[in-house]
Design a binder for these strands. Structure first.
Lengths: 335, 335
DNA sequence: TTGTATGCGTTATCAG
DNA sequence: CTGATAACGCATACAA
């Protein structure tokens, strides 16, 4: 910068003013400086600017992995939105382990992100105390269910209970009487799995159908998990005519395994997923799903985070947002 | 840091030495400093360190979008590898336009990444001149085909021609005589599409089958593109008994449309994709594909980039790597 | 409208 | 083994 200043016959301060588009720079000076900048190929040194300003313009995004379609699509929305807001996004993959999620949290401050959006799977509200101390004033938005904010974080959620309830109710309305839940959980705790399982359970109760443990298949939210879940159900000789899959990925795996077992969808078994990832519409049969308002969630997360970064939100007050959900009916539940 | 130094009764330099694990610090001093660091909750300021060191530890990754499974899975591998190497990755989404790809290139130096991995779609070798000036010494690795390096970039490629040739040959061996290519291109130029089309063409020639323009369906590499391509083929009354899809995403869209038209896979039409994304194995029918050695490509790209960042490669000499490919046969081509 | 002085937090250098 | 000093490149406050 000093070289530019010398070349243009001005002070470094004037160069700085030109670079940052400040007022009070005469046309002629500006032109002279710009010409020099151009000629010398000068670029601002972001590290120095960061040091000076105390901010980096970088938001961290911690997710299990961008290879999972759900997170890939979410990350795409967040990156796009962040770019529009003048931020960049560093993606950290946690692999869904509690340790690395905590690591990301710590890391986020070490690395000097301006803020962090974290979608936890391993880390839950039981870790709230540790989180609070780990974060202490640092802008963090929790995305998803495991961290429900617990009054210490801004939180973007989706309509897990209502969505799963709608999905299950939809199957029941189509005549299913033995509806299994793939990815469901019997355990306690707050997670996407347990909340959606609760929604499933409510729908059964509402319809006067019994809750049967044998219809709850606990699996990881992966293609392999979905396929294995169906195989297990069949192997155990459990009869079912409906399948609520807690994610679309799980559902796509299930469709595959159902085909392997010669079970027709939707004739023998009606299947519905959750997330409405793009692939759902192109599956064979196309997959009914619950669309959780991805873009609204991404927008909300970015808004909350940038407001907090800007200090526009009071330290103690935390916001909660739940995406609007919508049932999307396709072939897998009979169109 | 100065506060820590004061608290520990040493100089900032000693604190720095402790933080960076330098030798020549006595046990007792180290312990005292660490204790103070802990007590005061001190964290190194990365911006200052960056300013001092002239590097940021950040690698830019420019891809069309991480919502496309192929790029999502690639990004996941790169992020994981980069993390292992002590780098972080900022993801820039270009949306596959030439302008934003150029923008990413410019941006990469403005933002002070240590290097950039770029997978271009719009930008091609015809832009080589502009690229050269844009980059000029900055560490960049081109991933994919459009930028073949042109002797000015390190380049990680995949076996496009050989892979497509193997895929097409496989269909022919299974008895297909009218093999269409979905996503193929008639135009000139170097791109994944044109290279794979060339491979397809070679295989036809090798088998003594005629090259027919009507069997070349030019489409975007999306689910929608795949479905639309098949619809167009059927609508035009073009007979085909084999379908080489230039990406798996295209193939999954095609499978969907084939089902819509009542065409059985593999009985009426055999289908093969390219990329071997995870979903291929779980499609109904499961999708044969060409696995292009994703992880080897990711490793190679990171190795090349980090070596160049470290200045371990001569300025003028550029490296070329082609991933090992492998045909993966599944149901869609008859198992 | 432009320039001067100063400090952001680190670390390399070199003296002690 | 430890410490004083300078410098990385920029932008704020203030003076001219």
């Amino acid at each position: 910068m000093s070289e530019v200043a010398k070349a243009a016959g001005v002070s470094v301060m004037t160069v700085s003013n030109v670079v940052n588009g400040h007022r009070y720079v005469s046309e002629t000076t500006r032109d002279r400086v710009l010409e020099a900048i151009d000629r010398l190929g000068y670029r601002v040194n972001v590290a120095a600017r960061n040091l000076r300003s105390g901010s980096t313009g970088i938001i961290g995004l911690a997710v299990p992995g961008v290879d999972a379609p759900y997170f890939g699509q979410l990350a795409a929305l967040l990156i796009e939105g962040a770019t529009r807001l003048g931020y960049q996004i560093v993606v950290e993959q946690t692999g869904a382990t509690r340790e690395s999620e905590l690591g990301a949290l710590t890391h986020s401050r070490l690395r000097m992100y301006d803020g962090l959006i974290i979608s936890t799977v391993g880390l839950g509200n039981e870790d709230a105390e540790q989180l609070r101390s780990e974060i202490s004033g640092f802008p963090v938005v929790a995305l998803g269910e495991r961290l429900s904010g617990a009054g210490a974080l801004d939180h973007v959620a989706m309509a897990n209970v209502a969505g799963a309830l709608d999905a299950t109710r939809h199957l029941v309305e189509r005549g299913c009487r033995r509806v299994a839940v793939l990815g469901g959980t019997l355990g306690p705790g707050v997670s996407a799995g347990s909340l959606r399982t609760a929604g499933y359970r409510s729908a059964l109760a509402e319809a006067g159908l019994p809750w049967r443990e044998e219809l709850v298949v606990e699996r990881e939210f992966t293609l392999g998990g979905g396929a294995a879940g169906v195989r297990a159900l069949v192997a155990a000789g459990v009869a079912f005519d409906g399948l609520v899959c807690l994610t679309d990925t799980l559902a796509l795996g299930a469709l595959r395994a159902l085909a392997d077992h010669g079970l027709a969808v939707p004739d023998d078994v009606r299947v519905i997923g959750f997330d409405d990832i793009e692939q759902a519409a192109y599956a064979v049969p196309s997959l009914s799903s619950v669309a959780p308002g991805h873009s609204e969630m991404a927008d909300a997360a970015l808004r909350m985070l940038t407001e907090r970064i800007a200090g526009r939100r009071p330290e103690g007050a935390f916001e909660e947002f739940t995406g609007p959900h919508r049932l999307v009916v396709r072939e897998s539940t009979g169109g």
